[in-house]
């Protein structure tokens, strides 16, 4: 099973990927202003992925937005159960000017499944964060309306978690 945990080889990869992407304004701005928040970086199949520490996601989004990545395309989550950290909250950000995409990931422990909401940076995150809350049970601090969106209010459980059976509970 592939796990997004961070090790020594990851540190080497982080530095080489950041070095080869200094031309990217978001990478440049992040390494200058908040380099400690980048935990790992990956460049795979022409897609750049940066893993960000959980506390810094709002600050990172502000920097990324200011550097020209103006459009939040998608927010979603991956459950790596039974590995820890369990949840990978994933942000897909698009730049209309650069015609390029950037993926930000935040790893979230099962014990405290919560991330700060980025609705203050991109209001578009509103529905997506509610969807993740609904289907994965990850809470978003500071979200204006943290309620279920697709499932009924009285529904028990979070169906996209890997320990939830496909056919549901009977």
């Amino acid at each position: 099973m592939m796990s997004p945990a961070i090790d020594n080889a990851g540190k080497v990869e982080l530095e080489s990927v950041l070095a080869s992407h200094v031309g990217d304004p978001a990478v440049l701005a992040l390494t200058q202003k908040l380099s400690t928040s980048i935990q790992s970086a990956k460049f795979d199949r022409n897609e750049l992925t940066l893993t960000i520490s959980r506390e810094d996601i709002v600050a990172v989004c502000q920097i990324v937005q200011a550097s020209g990545y103006n459009f939040l395309a998608d927010v979603t989550c991956v459950d790596w159960y039974p590995n820890q950290p369990r949840f990978q909250v994933t942000y897909h950000i698009l730049s209309h000017g650069l015609k390029r995409r950037l993926r930000l990931c935040v790893l979230v422990e099962e014990g405290d499944p919560s991330v700060d909401s980025i609705t203050t940076v991109w209001p578009a995150a509103n529905f997506y964060e509610r969807e993740i809350f609904d289907l994965f049970g990850v809470r978003f601090g500071g979200h204006p309306n943290m309620r279920r969106i697709l499932l009924p209010e009285e529904f028990q459980g979070n169906p996209l978690r890997k320990d939830f059976p496909v056919e549901g509970y009977r």
Partner: peptide, 20 residues
């Protein structure tokens, strides 16, 4: 193994598939 995000212009706008 890997993660990809592919987007196309559908009739209604950006349709994207994130496949892990």
């Amino acid at each position: 193994a890997g993660q990809v995000y592919q987007a196309i212009e559908s009739s209604r706008g950006e349709m994207g598939y994130f496949v892990v």
